[in-house]
Design a protein around this nucleic acid. Structure first.
Length: 508
DNA sequence: TTTGCCGGGGA
DNA sequence: TCCCCGGCAAA
């Protein structure tokens, strides 16, 4: 029952995440908020959103069934020279219609102030005339809005406001909002502190990133992704358009490349976020993946190609070389993260003319609401995770030393620092009490100094691995010797497995 | 039913 | 200390 419930809740929240998206979008649409009683019917919303993801046409079709006026508004024919408003760089800008492609539902607009030509989705373009004329003349238009705002009086007010100020404002499910705010807050706080990272040289990052597809908590390096994403993108420019000031609430989405690129320094190459972006990310693109190293220092976000480079950068820019060099040297490891960059992804969008507000991109991003939920999840889990991985190597060796069972230091083990740490984190979250002493040892490595208070607290939560007695350790997801080698090759099992003890080769 | 492994016990 | 295994709990 509980699981069902949680599942349901999860679903719900997911839906919620979606809800906010289109509703905010809807806010910005021409006809604005034509979605009737959004909140009332989540299921309906979900279907609506599903179709939204699929494409606008569908959405309209569906909408039209319940709100006949919507398509009409949406299909307004814009004439060249017509004055419209669009969101550019997060700001409402006036522009002139250059061309209206009704086929792809796009409007080419010349921004007067910026002198920029760009394309917007029709929905994202507001007619100048309409803006003025709508409030008085379109009661129809207001009703849905009021439905959303739940207050007729404020509804109309906000309606007009939202029409003029195009900041994607989400008003929808309160819970969702809270979720997102939470996520945003966490992210922001994260972004203000150097997020820890595991030694980049560990190549486990690769498998980990792949594993991210399966489950974030299982992959060692997801942590990296998490941290990098969070710190990088959110701090770098969480807002769709404004590159610099992090404005967590402004946008739950990030068009990462776009954002961070303006902020990039010389060394900056790309900033698409590998792991997180990979999965839930709005834009998942070509696969040529490149490993970069991103500075996690607050408000830095510099990305370099080489470890050496990033270390040098951190040392020189943030830590300052000098005294305590030994300590520094170690410290610098904590201030960068390994980032897998999908090439092409960045240039493509970054160079796009619509880069600024890039409505299209946003839509795509929004169309993947899981990203939000996932983000939150990853966030929560990754923080400590990354913190863990940071000290993974040392703890790892502890383990080796500790292990009475571990007769053969198998080849896989050296790879495991990441896996180990991350996984143990997962274990920690789910079954803290059941951690074995060995594991607890690995978790308790709080020798790292700087992680955010937040990280620390997470760590603390995670680390009390006490109470090894009592509950059983939850079975891990990892393959065990038995599975890997089969019962017929029992001699190849790790000693612990042979002795029916907790497997030490495939830690989980 | 299978699998992972705790707890206990024998050598 | 090494090794084995009964038996429990999760999958």
């Amino acid at each position: 029952m509980a699981s069902v419930l949680s599942r349901r809740l999860g679903k719900r929240s997911l839906l919620g995440a979606r809800v906010s998206t289109p509703s905010s979008l809807a806010d910005r649409m021409l006809g604005t908020a034509q979605i009737p009683t959004l909140q009332a019917e989540l299921s309906r919303v979900s279907s609506h959103l599903a179709s939204y993801e699929g494409g606008r046409c569908k959405e309209q079709g569906e909408e039209s069934s319940m709100m006949p006026s919507f398509p009409n508004l949406n299909r307004l024919q814009l004439h060249p020279g017509q004055r419209v408003y669009v969101t550019y760089n997060g700001q409402e800008c006036a522009g002139l219609v250059e061309q209206h492609h009704q086929l792809n539902d796009e409007v080419q607009v010349l921004l007067l102030e910026q002198g920029v030509h760009a394309c917007w989705k029709t929905e994202d373009v507001r007619l100048a005339e309409m803006q003025r004329s709508l409030p008085p003349t379109l009661p129809m238009d207001q009703s849905p809005a009021t439905a959303m705002d739940q207050s007729p009086a404020t509804g109309s007010v906000q309606r007009s406001v939202s029409r003029n100020i195009d900041v994607p404002k989400r008003k929808s499910d309160a819970a969702v909002e809270m979720d997102e705010m939470m996520a945003a807050m966490v992210l922001t706080s994260l972004s203000c502190s150097p997020v820890v990272q595991s030694p980049p040289s560990r190549e486990s990052s690769m498998p980990a990133s792949q594993a991210a597809c399966d489950s974030w908590k299982e992959s060692g390096d997801v942590s990296d992704s998490g941290s990098s994403t969070t710190s990088g993108h959110w701090s770098g420019g969480s807002d769709i358009s404004t590159p610099s000031p992090p404005h967590p609430e402004a946008s739950p989405k990030y068009s990462s490349e776009a954002l961070s690129s303006p902020q990039a320094d010389d060394g900056f190459e790309t900033d698409s976020d590998p792991f997180l972006l990979d999965e839930p990310a709005p834009r998942k693109r070509k696969n040529s993946v490149k490993v970069m190293y991103k500075c996690l220092w607050p408000n830095c976000g510099k990305v370099l190609r080489s470890i050496v480079g990033i270390k040098r950068h951190i040392k020189s820019q943030h830590l300052g070389d000098g005294t305590d060099s030994d300590q520094r040297r170690r410290e610098e490891d904590f201030y960068y993260t390994e980032v897998q960059v999908k090439e092409e992804a960045v240039p493509e969008s970054a160079t796009s003319p619509t880069f600024g507000s890039s409505p299209i991109v946003i839509q795509q991003a929004l169309a993947k609401p899981e990203a939000l939920a996932l983000e939150q999840a990853t966030l929560e889990s990754h923080l400590p995770d990354s913190a863990l991985s940071q000290s993974a190597p040392s703890s790892f060796w502890h383990i080796q030393a500790d292990h009475a069972y571990q007769a053969l230091p198998s080849i896989q083990i050296p790879v495991s620092p990441h896996i180990f740490t991350s996984i143990s984190w997962a274990a920690a979250t789910s079954t803290i009490p059941s951690l074995s002493p060995v594991r607890s040892r690995s978790l308790s490595f709080s020798e790292h100094q700087q992680p955010t208070p937040m990280l620390k607290s997470h760590l603390i939560v995670a680390s009390p691995p006490r109470a090894p007695s009592g509950t059983r350790k939850v079975r891990g997801e990892a393959k065990k010797c038995r599975k890997v080698y089969g019962i017929e090759h029992r001699d190849q099992w790790c000693t612990a497995c042979r002795w029916k003890k907790a497997c030490q080769r495939f830690l989980d």
